[in-house]
Computed example of a mutant assay.
Amino acid sequence: MITVSIWTSATAMASILPSPIRPEPATRTSWLPLWAMAGALVVGAWVYLVVMAWGMAHMDVSGRWVLMPRMTGWTALDLVLVFLMWALMMAGMMLPTVVPVFRLLRRIDRADAARACPWCRSAGFALGYLSVWAGFSLGATLLQWGLLEMRLVSPMMESASTGLSGVLLVLAGIYQFSPLKNACLQRCRSPLSFLMTQRSDSGFRLGLRQGSYCAGCCALLMLLLFVLGVMNLWWIVALTVFVILEKTVPDARWFSRLSGVGLMAWGAWMLVSGVGV
């Protein structure tokens, strides 16, 4: 069965829902603070990533920055800083991918005359969605700490082991073929039925569920940041574009499988040749 893209779902929603009365300017304006906050978070996250990436390449300057964790011997403060890095990175990378879901949810709530606050569920959705990725960021922080202590990740936040890089790439490639990956991706691409059947749920619960599907789809891909560098800006951009394409290209199954083959081939080459990146 061909998976309907998330963008197609937005069109379908417009035809299914009754056309509400054109909102008054005050109603439209009430959404501006929410969109402004979401946009500011995404822009701020990317500004932070650009600054931190520059700092990693100029440690003679950034080594004195408050936001820069120590190279080794992390303290509780360093763990907090690395968690902040991961959390902002996930917000910048993943929040733009659910903009179509925001639009669908807004359409549903604006059509519901009984709903006094048409934007509250969208705000709760964003909070729930980001909470899932905050949980992932906590796990990634602890994983990075462990790998750093085992000398498998360098102080520059990139893999110091060809074996680690190769294994991560092969596992990510295999996962692209898994039923769990396909099920989560389908939910991410086609949220229409999910939102329609959960109309009574709070926005926070909807965000937790959608975030869980997206984490199930993309978490292993995010761990590939260790391969070329957690603060490698071009690698971050490439993974972000990949996730967006996987959620939007028609019949994404072929895209996922083709990328899976490429990831497995890349990882196998690294394991066999012993040549890093």
Rank of each mutant, 00 (worst) to 15 (best):
I2N: 09
S5E: 12
W7I: 15
A10Y: 05
A14Q: 10
S15G: 00
S19Q: 14
E24W: 00
A26Y: 01
T27M: 14
T29A: 14
T29W: 12
M37K: 06
V43N: 11
Y48K: 00
G55F: 06
A57N: 14
M59I: 13
W65D: 00
L67W: 03
M68I: 11
W74F: 15
L79K: 00
V82E: 08
A91S: 12
A91E: 05
M94E: 08
P96Q: 08
V98H: 02
V101G: 07
L105F: 08
L105C: 10
A111N: 09
D112H: 04
C117E: 14
R121K: 13
V132R: 08
W145S: 09
L148W: 07
L148M: 15
S154I: 05
M157F: 10
S159V: 00
V167A: 06
G173K: 02
I174M: 09
F177A: 03
P179Q: 13
P179S: 11
N182V: 08
N182Q: 09
L185A: 13
R189H: 03
F194N: 02
M196P: 04
S202N: 08
G203E: 07
G203K: 04
G203L: 03
F204Y: 14
Q210I: 01
Y213S: 15
C214L: 03
L221C: 01
M222C: 05
L225W: 01
W234P: 01
L239I: 07
L245W: 11
A252N: 04
R253T: 10
S259F: 13
G260A: 01
M264R: 12
M264D: 11
A265I: 07
A268I: 10
A268F: 02
M270Y: 09
L271A: 02
G274R: 05
